[in-house]
């Protein structure tokens, strides 16, 4: 993955995994409200989730999950895509427009810290919370000294 696709994958992931309310709030802060055309209206479908036999072996189909996708185009021809978990069409549409906008270097410099970084930080915080709660359930074995040694 090149540097630019890595960055794009990162912001797309942040937008997909954010709470829809957070994406809506980010959208509301955009001045002026973006103008765009739908290439493919938000559509909910299924993505087959795959596992691997033994965790590391040949892939198999575990079961499907709902995913909603949307594709838009801005006036200057930039195309934005979004694939978000669940069935929220608006979340997908907002994310697709943001994806299109962020592909412009200048817009990205301005908006990434404002919109994407808080989403990434929130997610990281949630994971840290889980880690902290779970850590207390790790068994701390203590060794017993037996006999003469």
């Amino acid at each position: 993955m090149t540097g630019s696709t890595e960055a794009r994958a990162r912001w797309m992931s942040a937008l997909a995994q954010a709470e829809p309310a957070a994406v809506e709030a980010a959208w509301a802060r955009l001045e002026p409200e973006p103008v765009y055309r739908l290439l493919r209206a938000a559509e909910t479908g299924l993505v087959m989730v795959r596992g691997r036999a033994g965790g590391t072996g040949a892939p198999f189909n575990l079961g499907e999950m709902t995913v909603t996708r949307c594709s838009v185009t801005l006036d200057d021809g930039r195309v934005g895509h979004a694939y978000v978990p669940g069935r929220d069409g608006r979340h997908a549409e907002r994310a697709a427009v943001l994806d299109a906008i962020l592909q412009d270097e200048a817009a990205r410099e301005a908006l990434e810290p404002l919109i994407i970084e808080p989403l990434v930080a929130a997610r990281r915080a949630r994971q840290q919370e889980t880690r902290a709660r779970v850590a207390g359930t790790r068994v701390e074995f203590f060794t017993m000294v037996r006999g003469e040694e």
């Binding site: 055309r37 493919r40 594709s71």
Partner: peptide, 9 residues
Amino acid sequence: MRAGFADPV
């Protein structure tokens, strides 16, 4: 990129 069906269904 051209659009597809306006109303897919």
